[in-house]
Design a protein around this nucleic acid. Structure first.
Lengths: 225, 225
DNA sequence: CCAGTTAGTGACCCGCGAGTCATTAACATC
DNA sequence: GATGTTAATGACTCGCGGGTCACTAACTGG
């Protein structure tokens, strides 16, 4: 009788499934230890494979990491852009929702993990850094830019230094993600309160200042939640 | 004839001066390579000393790093707190100045370097992480809190989700610092424009919304939190 | 059932760097 | 100048992990 557990017998040949499994294992190990400190041996074990097999599919640790980045980044931005295409009507709630999603994504998925690795070890691995910049940062900025330009055009957002450099608008979300990964255990911050503060911050910053007669938003009280 | 350069002859005994010199060297090497990747041999060479000597003064790499952190953090906060003690009059310009200083400090000194190392490698070196949290983060939040509370008390700042969690207010500065260290070479951001955006962001977010006549805070809007 | 192909294996190679320690020599004291 | 103390040295040890490659066995086609 073979093993009662589905413990796949060794030396199974599964050319198709391997790369994906190895990427998942890599993501887990990179997340737990960072790029440099993650051991390929552990990646292999986690993927249920021998060390040599990993190198059969990815020529180096760096290549594996790049594959992992690519596997996670693309879907996110495709989804966001699609949402923007679909949208019509007031922009402010769209921006709020966008920010909410970013918080949620950074809180749950491997995205923040990848981000930390880039921050941490990017400088020493220029190839990785460039890939990430091209595939993620640039696209992220474009999405934000799109929303802000739209809001300004519709007269919902006041044009100024902030709309000139929209990336300031998401900095709280990034800080929250970084905080969680570093001081999270030591000194957690309440996510919903942080999100509320973030939303309030950008709502007020973008609101046109002629509050009295300003048509659309916030005659008296709007910003919160 | 000995060296024409003042190349100090080897094996000089200078018990007093060594620790400081080694800390400086360590800071430089940590900054250039991160904690893990910095080599003690290089620290030694940079300090003009043999490897063994470094270990005579600091029992381990980790201990050297902690000493380096301590040497840089304390002066900063002492100076800030002193400034707050001295201050009277409107709070808004004080906050602006504070933010300006933070940007400047992060742009120039070793502070951002230390920050990156904490983000990058903190999780794997809990002792380091705790030191930094205690000596830096906690004190930083306290300063910010002080300013915000003062502003709210004077009716200059609208109390809300933002004043409830003042750390959102400096997130753009942190993001700028991180950005500079990672994508700085690849895709620089103009510092003055970023600072302007940051200042505008927090100015509008804190301004009481009864722009027309309201001097004290928000007679109409309170409900939030 | 028998080659031939190739996914999969893991013992091994090799460079690297933290930390050690026996030795050396700078300085103090008399 | 002799002697004791200890700062300073750097060759060495040792574990670690990325990457290799000769070998093994799972499939494939005839």
């Amino acid at each position: 009788m073979p093993e009662p557990e589905q413990a796949a017998k060794p030396r199974q040949r599964r050319k198709e499934a391997r790369p994906g499994e190895i990427i998942e294992a890599g993501l887990a190990e990179f997340g737990a230890h960072g790029f440099e400190a993650a051991r390929m041996e552990d990646v292999a074990r986690r993927a249920g494979v021998a060390k040599g097999t990993v190198f059969r599919y990815f020529p180096s640790k760096e290549a594996l990491f790049e594959a992992a980045v690519r596997s996670r980044i693309a879907p996110v931005f495709d989804q966001l852009n699609e949402m923007l295409d679909r949208h019509e009507g007031p922009v402010a709630p769209l921006l709020q929702m966008l920010v909410g999603r970013i918080h949620a994504r950074l809180a749950s998925s491997d995205l923040s993990v990848l981000m930390r690795i880039i921050i941490a070890e990017g400088p020493r691995f220029p190839a990785i850094l460039e890939t990430y910049h091209r595939e993620s940062i640039t696209r992220g900025r474009a999405v934000l830019e799109r929303v802000v330009v739209l809001g300004v055009a519709r007269g919902e957002f006041r044009a100024g230094a902030v709309t000139d450099l929209p990336m300031v608008l998401i900095s709280p979300a990034l800080m929250a993600a970084i905080w969680r990964m570093t001081f999270g255990r030591l000194d957690p911050i309440p996510p919903e309160r942080f999100l509320a503060a973030h939303l309030e911050l950008i709502a007020h910053a973008l609101r046109p200042d002629g509050v009295v007669g300003a048509s659309a938003n916030a005659p008296s009280c709007r910003g919160e939640r």
